[in-house]
Design a protein around this nucleic acid. Sequence first.
DNA 1: GATGAATGAGCCTTCATTCAT
DNA 2: GATGAATGAAGGCTCATTCAT
Lengths: 198, 198, 198, 198
Amino acid sequence: MGVFVERGYAETHVEEIARRAGVAKATIYLYYENKLELFKAVVRNSLVAGFEDLSKTYFVHNLSAREQLTLALSVFMERVAGSALSGIPKLIIAEAGNFPEIARFYYDEVILRVHALLVRVLAEGAGSGEFRHVDSDYVWRIIVAPMLLSIIWKHSFQVFEPEPLDFRRHLAAQLDLLFDGLATDSNKATRPSGSSSA
Amino acid sequence: MGVFVERGYAETHVEEIARRAGVAKATIYLYYENKLELFKAVVRNSLVAGFEDLSKTYFVHNLSAREQLTLALSVFMERVAGSALSGIPKLIIAEAGNFPEIARFYYDEVILRVHALLVRVLAEGAGSGEFRHVDSDYVWRIIVAPMLLSIIWKHSFQVFEPEPLDFRRHLAAQLDLLFDGLATDSNKATRPSGSSSA
Amino acid sequence: MGVFVERGYAETHVEEIARRAGVAKATIYLYYENKLELFKAVVRNSLVAGFEDLSKTYFVHNLSAREQLTLALSVFMERVAGSALSGIPKLIIAEAGNFPEIARFYYDEVILRVHALLVRVLAEGAGSGEFRHVDSDYVWRIIVAPMLLSIIWKHSFQVFEPEPLDFRRHLAAQLDLLFDGLATDSNKATRPSGSSSA
Amino acid sequence: MGVFVERGYAETHVEEIARRAGVAKATIYLYYENKLELFKAVVRNSLVAGFEDLSKTYFVHNLSAREQLTLALSVFMERVAGSALSGIPKLIIAEAGNFPEIARFYYDEVILRVHALLVRVLAEGAGSGEFRHVDSDYVWRIIVAPMLLSIIWKHSFQVFEPEPLDFRRHLAAQLDLLFDGLATDSNKATRPSGSSSA
DNA sequence: GATGAATGAGCCTTCATTCAT
DNA sequence: GATGAATGAAGGCTCATTCAT
């Protein structure tokens, strides 16, 4: 799968895939109808692998909303951003124009789930008083964004930097900001529905 | 430029570029040595256009750090994400593997500047007491991330949604979170250097 | 004309011809219908120039056959082999396959004349007792051959040699051999019609 | 190989080569990197074939210099001039300007060998008293010239003549002239080292 | 008369795909 | 089941030629 991620669909030749698989080019066609199906299979399999990997960890309960959010992001960071799976999103982004079907697949299988998950956690947090009420249909993307950026960074700009991006520090920075914001207390917006300040 | 953004480099045929330009294929080669040079020129020109567009607006002074940050993100949102320029970053991300030279160009011309700008504003904010002290070398990416995501969303997943992403609402959600964080006051982390605690 | 000789017809571009002529490419087409006509004109003109050049010298009379032969070869050597005209034969040889019309032209204008000239001189020499009777329809080519070779050498292999071919020495070697042969007298073939043996 | 000889490199299209070989154009590229390599291979192979063909015959010993010379020229005439191999020299001459590398190859592999061979035979002949002492560094080309001319004639001008060139007669004419010269005995140059005439 | 700009036609080359073995 | 060999289809690029200015 690495080849697809590095070079993109068009620049990835069936011959090279075969070589890396240690078989002849023609052999590929015994298992896949054509290059596009091969590509889809690769994406699908990686996605499945990703799901299984993620699900191993996430079925834990009795966590506060904050803990859930922290856990979700941490898990993603470790299992996806830090692994070979990180290539998938990058690939989807790059090829969405040429293969809407694949983008759709990813949208249905990944994006909608992430969306649902985050909206639920935000709602739980708001319900429990942990979180402020926010525009969750938009906020969820703000939360996801740094994850995505870390992946893109890794695949596209890492090479130009002296040191690799420290995923833990990246995550810490996000969580710090995410929960507490950038402003100092005296500079916070005055919110009528301030919590238990009284 | 649209074709390159939609289809990527490989799937964009010189013939189509020529057709859209209303000239014959050979004519393209009067102005560009080859397809790659054409591609680079397109990216470069768009980037230049982007810079000029941005710089028209950003030379404003006597703004608080918060106002600067808000302004920077707003301007980007309007001038880049909301315009045809949004295709550039998407394109760079997709083709970085095949054309490191272009990725490098973008890194030097865009990313480093954005980095410098944000780090400076963060420092100013921290100096003036507006902002908390944060890990600015990592935080700057967290701030940029939602901008990037909005672009990617637009180019890769917008089509699958009933309504287009509302850039203003997206920005508002980010700013809300960015400055104030998600946690309610009583759930903030206790920070030793908490400001108005006294 | 140099370009045609060096590169051949196909590799000689109208653009370069124009550049060397100090005009624009389109200007060429004001004077020549197309590239082929231009090529023919170049060949024709060079040939005409060659003829005029040669004829200036050759109208001398009262020479013995041997003197005539010597003169003819000398003149050719100086006026053709040693000049830019040498390119013509090389060019004809190279392009005869693609442009039989040109080869024919050369055959009619040059080869047949040379043939006639040499056959006549050989006949005169035989008549006067200067030369042996030889198979003049074939011998004439043997006489021409070294001339041609000197031209080919110059255009195709000269570059690989430390010193340029010395045309005078080349001619001297030919004349020496041509008149006296290689064998020592005692090794000559015994010819019944030996000349002044009686 | 015929196509290259007839049309030259530029006018020989890979498609036609493929057609003559009874395969598809793309098949050619399975065996040759590109058109130039194909061309080189054709030349090289023909040359190799030529060498093998020649060497089969020439390892004969105990021959007088005259016999050696006669044999060499006869063999060349039969094996090269009279065969398809005759195309090679014509091709080299035509394309030397565009592909110096190939001309060099031919120079090294063929010309230098021929040169060495002839110079040696001339020296042997002079040593044994069979031949006069001549300027062998120039004379060798005079000897080769008619061979070359016969080839060129065949490929470029044969078509315009009613009868094909008779190689045997051509060779006979050359040998006749080569050994005995053109002049009758009484018209020979008076050479001090005249042999045993007395 | 001269030319800058434009192009149609064509060739080399690549690569996903097929198929006989 | 695997593959070596072959190819159809397509794209990048070149260049002789045209034409409005």
